[in-house]
Amino acid sequence: MRVFLIFSIFIVSFFSQSETYEKLPKLKNNQGYFVVSYSGNYPPYHLSIVSNDTIFKSQEDLSDFKLKKGYRVIVLDEGEYMYSRLKLAKHAGYYKLASRELLFTVTAGKVNYAGDLQFEYHHYNESVSSKVVNHISKTYLWLQENHPKLMDKRKIIYSGLGVDNFMNFYFNQ
C-alpha cells in the first residue's frame, strides 16, 4: 500500500508566474499549497524539490522561470520535502543544494511557506551557494495582492526551519 501510495503521489503543480495571476487548482484532501519564493543572481532554469521519503523519492521539477526573483504557488501532497538541485541554463549542469537545511513540510489544506530560497552563482569557481531566509510577512502581502481569494479562504503557515507561529498570532489579532 505504501509503495502504491508513494508511487501514486501525483504532485499537481500549477506554475504560477509572479507576473501572471492564474487560478490555482483545487486541493485534494491530502494536499496543500506551497509557496516557492526564490531570488538569485540568475533566473533559475530548473529547480527541483524532492520528497524526503528515505526509500521512494518523488521529484518535482519547476522550470520556465523568467525572473531573478519571484514567487510560485504549487500544489504538493502533505509530507516532508527539500529543495534538492538547481540548474541555471539549459545546457548547464545541476548544482546540488545544501541538503537538510532546505528541508520543509507541507500540511494539507494550508498555504505552506518555508522561507525564500536565496542562491548565488559564483563565477570564479562555478559553484552555487544557497540559504533559506524567512520572509513570511512579505510573502503574505504578495499573496494578498495576487491571490486574494486564496488568502480569504486559507491561512499561510511557516513550515521551514525552526518554529515561527507569528502568522497565527497575526490572524488572531
Binding site: 522561507g115 524567512n134 525552526g162
Partner: peptide
C-alpha cells in the same frame, strides 16, 4: 521577535551559532 531569531534563516543549522544564541536569549 526573539523567537524568530531561531527561525529566520539557515544559520540555525550551525550548532555553535544556535548555542551562542541560546546563551544570549534563552532556549526557544
Amino acid at each position: 521577535d526573539i523567537p524568530l531569531m531561531f527561525a529566520q534563516d539557515t544559520r540555525m543549522k550551525v550548532d555553535a551559532y544556535k548555542q551562542a544564541m541560546i546563551d544570549i536569549v534563552g532556549d526557544p
